[in-house]
Design a protein around this nucleic acid. Structure first.
Lengths: 156, 156
DNA sequence: ATCTGAGTTCAGTATGGACTAAACTGTCTG
DNA sequence: CAGACAGTTTAGTCCATACTGAACTCAGAT
């Protein structure tokens, strides 16, 4: 039927996701794999051990990966009655968070350019290049922020 | 007068710029330093040798840094009559380019999510998480793109 | 032809960080 | 209590890659 089993296809896809986040967000590969896997796994809530075997990583790596993913709010840990340990799932607002974090980077850069202008305040011409940057990124920050408003959700 | 000489302040600022681009865009530190330096240096057009001494890097590093900066269109090489070698300056549209490149990353991710949906086309429920991501990033891509229109120039 | 300076390439070093195995902690079960 | 399991920490390995020095190429000037 398929040239590749769906499992293999999914793992290959997870690999692409991991590579993307490694390249664009500086995430360690394994962390990206966890995120990618949690996007497509069935069931959608899995234990660290399950994830580890799925993506072929060690318990230790899972521990650190999950720590950063939880701290970033990308992944949530849920417990179940009468089961020990936690199950992990992607947060409902992962992607808003990812995007918002990128937006923050924009803001950080605006701060840098602002400080640059400060240093060059007595040489306006020399500050032109920095000023251009500052204007563009401040504008973008302001225009993009409203596109990322929290959805007011009260879903179960 | 100053606690730090302006030169020192600028170098410290360049360092921040370099760190920012290293962290957010995966640029090597030296490459970021070159870019930062070219944002504030006086005169605004400098030779590779001048830049190298300014930021304390080797000729070899400058060579590679300049290659990637030029290839990305972030820096332009200009020649002058009766002078040998080239002078480097930031491109007029550096920041548009930087921003546009980030936007492309968004598009790349939309492609990834699209392919993920493809793989899961026969399990709609399982594709929900990927679909959410796809919708958000496609939307953002479309909404952000118009904020980055090329200024209408007709240079070659 | 030779010299000089700009720029590239190459080989080697080293620094950082991702990853793992193994030891350890703590908690729940029987 | 013993035993098992979830998870963390630590120590160490390994790999990628940034960076440099030095050799090299090429162009123009004299």
């Amino acid at each position: 039927m398929d040239e590749q089993s769906k499992e293999e296809q999914l793992l290959a896809w997870v690999e692409r996701v991991a590579a993307f986040f490694a390249r664009n967000n500086g995430l360690p590969l394994i962390t990206g794999r966890v995120l990618g896997w949690l996007m497509v796994c069935d069931p959608p809530e899995q234990t660290a051990a399950q994830i580890a075997t799925a993506i072929g990583a060690s318990k230790a790596s899972l521990s650190t990966a999950v720590r950063v993913l939880e701290a970033s709010g990308f992944v949530r840990a849920v417990t179940r009655p009468a089961e020990r340990g936690v199950h992990l799932r992607v947060a409902d607002d992962v992607w808003e968070r990812v995007a918002r974090r990128k937006l923050e980077a924009l803001g950080d850069f605006s701060e840098i350019t602002a400080d640059g202008l400060e240093i060059l305040h007595d040489e306006p011409a020399r500050g032109d290049r920095v000023r251009d940057a500052h204007r563009l990124f401040s504008r973008l920050e302001q225009q993009i922020a409203p596109l990322l408003q929290h959805r007011d959700d009260d879903s179960p």
